[in-house]
Design a protein around this nucleic acid. Structure first.
Lengths: 130, 130
DNA sequence: CTCCGTGCAAATACTTTGCAAAGCG
DNA sequence: CGCTTTGCAAAGTATTTGCACGGAG
């Protein structure tokens, strides 16, 4: 894949890709700001929406009012801690990856399913011990 | 269940329960405003959060920037049309209802899963024919 | 010269909150 | 009377956008 990214766009993507924490736009901004002092938050938002269009990232969902992103485009689910809002990857459960489920829903509901997003909620290990 | 709701609270709940459209706070407000002219949007938001605490409603998720709610507390999933943002109920897929999946994730990820939320995305029947 | 990417600030959109008044038992 | 609910407006929070500038080809 040919990617001719500007320096800032590249830095934003790399920052997103550097973590498994499923960060917010603001987190990326805060992390990058010291290295790139003239970076603006609007640029982070704009580039995230570019990445989304390029299918380089996907949204995990809105957690505690902020959208969380993931550069890992492989099929997997997420666990969200309702106390600290940490997000943990969950291996995709076989049955769900099965596209026959899409067919079933298409038929059942008269729709065309293109993707899905599975979220589990609960308390993470760290928060349990407090 | 004993429910001693104020008139407005009752009206807000009934409006939420009167539809399968998985409405937003604003939709409830617009729908009720003609009947209850001195209703305020803040009251709708406040009561929705009361219902949430009482486990009378759950959030379907944030769709196109607005949170969508459902009074149907039975286990089921949702389909979201990415064009018109309609939400359609999807019958719960057996395997997911199985709480052994929670056990599996608890073990695998060192968490305590308490609930889950499954969203399918795609194009609905109405939008397909345009 | 042209286009794309960007900073900055303003605008937008949704939701929450403080406060005083009204409602209800 | 005391606790709950509410309207209203302001505040809060996240995100998007307009505009003019600047750098790369």
């Amino acid at each position: 894949m040919k990617r001719n990214f500007s320096a800032k766009r590249e830095a934003i993507y790399q920052t997103l890709a550097s973590t498994h924490s499923h960060p917010t736009a603001e987190w990326v901004y805060e992390r990058l700001k010291p290295k790139i002092p003239d970076l603006s938050l609007g640029t982070v938002y704009r580039n995230i929406s570019v990445f989304r269009e390029m299918n380089l990232i996907k949204s995990v969902g809105v957690v505690n009012g902020q959208e969380r992103f993931d550069t890992d485009m492989s099929q997997h689910s997420h666990f969200v801690c309702t106390k600290c809002f940490k997000i943990v990857d969950v291996p995709e459960l076989k049955n769900f990856a099965d596209k026959n489920i899409y067919e079933y829903i298409n038929h059942q509901c008269n729709v065309t399913v293109q993707s899905h997003n599975m979220l589990f909620y609960g308390i993470c290990g760290d928060c349990k011990h407090q």
